[in-house]
């Protein structure tokens, strides 16, 4: 990986929060990097820690969550050492976040135009007219008529609201846009349109995307590289085409076997048996072993390390030790 175009490097990140049942390590030693102009997909089930990572990069995670280890480097700056002022200019301008169900979290009392204006004016010196122009321009680029600047969130459909949120996140042309489940709860057609719009914006503006979802089928073809997370750790990471063509980790294999096809051959799928682990007491050794058809004795006691099996194809599994 060329270091000049690397914009984000996460090393051995650990995040913990105290729950009613004791400390939960939501993210346990995650490392990956994102390049300039790249779409990086992060896939995993609910509770695997992917949303936690998204919020940690911007350090918006609220107590009782704490970062207990690792580093986040954005373009030679250490995010974990930033002061509040530094973070204020870092957020939205360098890295922005479209969080899960953002479309339902818009302020119902303020028009979407004003909400975008707020973001622009809070982080730049533009005057109101410039900011308004910018807001209108962003809305147009996501496919919303500028005269809807004056609409309230409830007057827009789900798809429109999500587009507005995306426009907000991109209004300051950040280097990296983190999108956490941006199309869940949207209809198939709307989902498709929005993904296409995001792709168009990406090629014209040139930002990178960290795309987080539980639906692997969205990432294939849309992202250049994909990391598969399970129970707070990355279990496999590679280029998307490579991952689909030659998956190594049994979890990845299970995931790929969870998608019925509309036009392929019709066959019985197995998916992945069992349920995700309780993160307050994850299984010992390899965390996936209780659900793994190929589990060996070793898997119950020794945690596998993430190793580069082929160039740029990493796997954490004893099958390949």
């Amino acid at each position: 990986m060329k270091n000049e175009s690397q914009i984000l490097a996460i090393r051995d990140l650990r995040v913990r929060y105290n729950s009613e049942r004791g400390p939960v390590t939501a993210v346990d030693g995650v490392s990956f990097s994102i390049m300039q102009g790249e779409v990086f997909g992060l896939a995993g089930e609910s509770g695997c820690g992917k949303s936690t990572i998204a919020q940690t990069i911007l350090r918006v995670l609220r107590p009782p969550a704490v970062i207990t280890g690792g580093s986040i480097e954005f373009r030679d700056r250490q995010v974990l050492e930033m002061t509040d002022e530094e973070l204020a200019s870092f957020r939205w301008r360098e890295v922005s976040l479209v969080f899960q169900s953002a479309m339902n979290s818009l302020n119902p009392l303020i028009t979407i135009g004003d909400q975008i204006l707020d973001v622009i004016q809070a982080h730049t010196d533009r005057n109101k007219r410039d900011a308004r122009e910018r807001a209108a321009e962003m809305l147009k680029r996501v496919g919303i008529e500028p005269d809807r600047l004056r609409s309230y969130p409830h007057e827009l459909s789900g798809g429109m609201r999500q587009r507005a949120v995306i426009a907000m996140a991109l209004s300051l042309e950040p280097t990296l846009a983190i999108m956490d489940e941006p199309t869940t709860a949207l209809d198939v057609l709307v989902q498709r349109q929005i993904l296409e719009e995001i792709e168009e914006l990406r090629t014209s503006i040139g930002f990178s995307i960290l795309f987080i979802t539980h639906d692997l089928s969205l990432l294939v073809g849309f992202s250049q590289r994909i990391a598969i997370m399970y129970a707070g750790q990355i279990v496999e990471m590679s280029y998307s085409s490579e991952l689909v063509r030659e998956p190594f980790h049994p979890y990845t294999l299970g995931l790929l076997d969870s998608f019925p096809s509309v036009n392929g051959e019709r066959r019985k799928l197995i998916g992945i048996p069992g349920t995700p682990p309780d993160m307050s007491a994850p299984p010992g050794g390899c965390r996936f072993h209780p659900r793994c058809a190929k589990a060996m004795e070793r898997c119950r006691f020794v945690a596998p390390q993430l190793r580069e099996l082929k160039p740029d194809h990493w796997v954490a599994c004893h099958l390949y030790d």
């Binding site: 198939v188 057609l189 989902q191 498709r192 993904l195 296409e196 792709e199 639906d215 692997l216 089928s217 969205l218 294939v220 073809g221 849309f222 689909v244 790929l256 998608f259 096809s261 509309v262 036009n263 392929g264």
Partner: peptide
């Protein structure tokens, strides 16, 4: 036909429709 073309498919890339 429209619905079918919009369905994400693991075996099919993300073609611009």
């Amino acid at each position: 036909k429209l619905l079918l073309s919009a369905v994400p498919d693991v075996n099919r890339g993300f073609e611009r429709t």
